[in-house]
Amino acid sequence: MSQQPTTPRLRPLPMLGVVVLAVLMLVVWSVVTDSAHRSRSRTPVELPTAEAPPDPGVEPPTIRLLPSDAAVRSPDNRPQQQLAGWAASMSEELDIPRPALEAYGYAASALEVTRPKCGLSWSVLAGVAAVESRHGRHGGAELDRTGRTSEPIRGLPLDGRDGVMLIRDTDNGKLDGDLVFDRAVGPFQFIPTTWKEWGTDADGDGVADPDDIDDAAMAAGHYLCASGGDLRDADRFWEALLDYNASRSYGQDVLDHADYYGRKSRRLSARR
C-alpha cells in the first residue's frame, strides 16, 4: 500500500523571533511611509519650520536716502542701485532678481532711519514677496532694471466666493482693471484701498506704483512697521503678518522663506 504524502508541519517560531520580525516590519513600514510623506510635502527650497523673528540676514550697506523732493527720471539713477554690489553678491544663489533684492535692501535701510524702532529686515520683505508673487515673477512676469513687472500681476476678484473677501470696486478699476470687484495688485499684492493709504514713490520717478517693486517694497515695509511695532519681538512680528494677511499658514510660509534667505545669505557671506 502506498503512503499519501504528508503535509510538513510548521514549527512555531520562538517568541524572540516573533518580536524581532515584528520590529523589522514596523521599521520598514515607517521608512516607506515617511519617505512618501516627505515626497508629498517637499518645497522647492526645502524650507524648515522657523520661529519668529526670522534670521535678518546679511545687512545691506549704509545708504543715502532719497530726498523727498527728488525726481529720479533715469533707471540708472534709482537710489536702490546704491545696493547693486550687495544684491549682486547674493541674487543668483538666493534666486531673487537683483532689482527685487535692491528694493528690499533699500526699504529696510531707509526704514532703519525713518522707523528705527521697527527692526524690519530685508529678509522679511523678501519672504512676503516670495509668497505673494515669487519676487514679481508670478505667471511668467519678469522684472526690468527699473523694478517694474513685464506683465501686470493681479489677484483673483474679491467676490466673496471660495473663501475670499468680498470687496466691491473702490477705484473704478484704475489700479486693478476691474470695475466690479477689487483685486490685489503687484508683487506685494496690495488691494486698492490699502495702496491708497500706504502707496509710496520709493524710486523718485514721480509715481507711487504698486507694480514697481521699489515702491511696493517700501509701502509694505511702512505697513508692517505700523501694524506690528517692534518686529524683533515674536508676538509683534506675528501681529504684523496676520494684519497683512489673516492666515496663520500664510504667516508661517513668509516666516520660513524669510529665515531661509537670512540664513543662506550669512552662509554665502561666510564663504567669501
Rank of each mutant, 00 (worst) to 15 (best):
C118D: 02
A71T: 06
A50G: 07
T193N: 11
P54Q: 04
P192H: 04
P187M: 14
E59P: 00
A216W: 03
F181L: 13
R11N: 13
V23E: 12
Y250K: 02
G251H: 01
N172D: 15
P99N: 10
T49R: 08
D182W: 03
D256Q: 05
A50W: 05
A219P: 01
E102L: 03
P192N: 09
V207F: 15
S109L: 11
V113G: 01
L101P: 02
A220G: 06
V128K: 00
P8W: 11
A202S: 13
A130W: 01
T149D: 08
C118L: 03
I167Y: 13
A208Q: 11
M15F: 13
A258C: 06
Q4K: 15
L16R: 13
A22D: 08
P48W: 02
D209I: 05
W122F: 10
P12G: 12
D171I: 06
D169N: 12
Q81A: 09
P53Y: 03
D201S: 11
R183Y: 03
L21H: 11
S121F: 07
A202Y: 05
W238E: 12
R115E: 10
P99M: 05
L120R: 02
Y261P: 00
P152R: 09
S227K: 10
D256K: 01
A108I: 00
D169F: 12
D233N: 10
H222T: 10
M15K: 12
A87W: 00
R266Q: 14
A88E: 06
V28P: 04
G139W: 06
S109I: 03
V31D: 14
A234E: 10
V72W: 02
D201W: 06
L242A: 01
D209M: 07
A130C: 06
S74F: 15
D230P: 04
Q3V: 15
L16M: 14
R183D: 04
D259M: 00
L242N: 01
G119D: 09
E92A: 12
D203Q: 05
E197R: 14
G228I: 03
N245G: 01
R236H: 13
Y106F: 08
G199E: 08
V58S: 00
Y261D: 02
D69C: 05
G177V: 09
A234G: 07
K117P: 10
Y244A: 00
R248W: 05
R236E: 09
Q4P: 13
V128R: 00
G204V: 03
V113L: 02
G57P: 02
R161G: 10
V113Q: 05
D95M: 11
V28W: 12
R272V: 13
L101K: 01
D211Q: 12
A216S: 11
R267P: 06
F181D: 05
G139D: 05
R248Y: 07
L10P: 09
P116C: 06
P75G: 09
T170M: 10
P8T: 09
P157K: 04
D176F: 03
G186N: 04
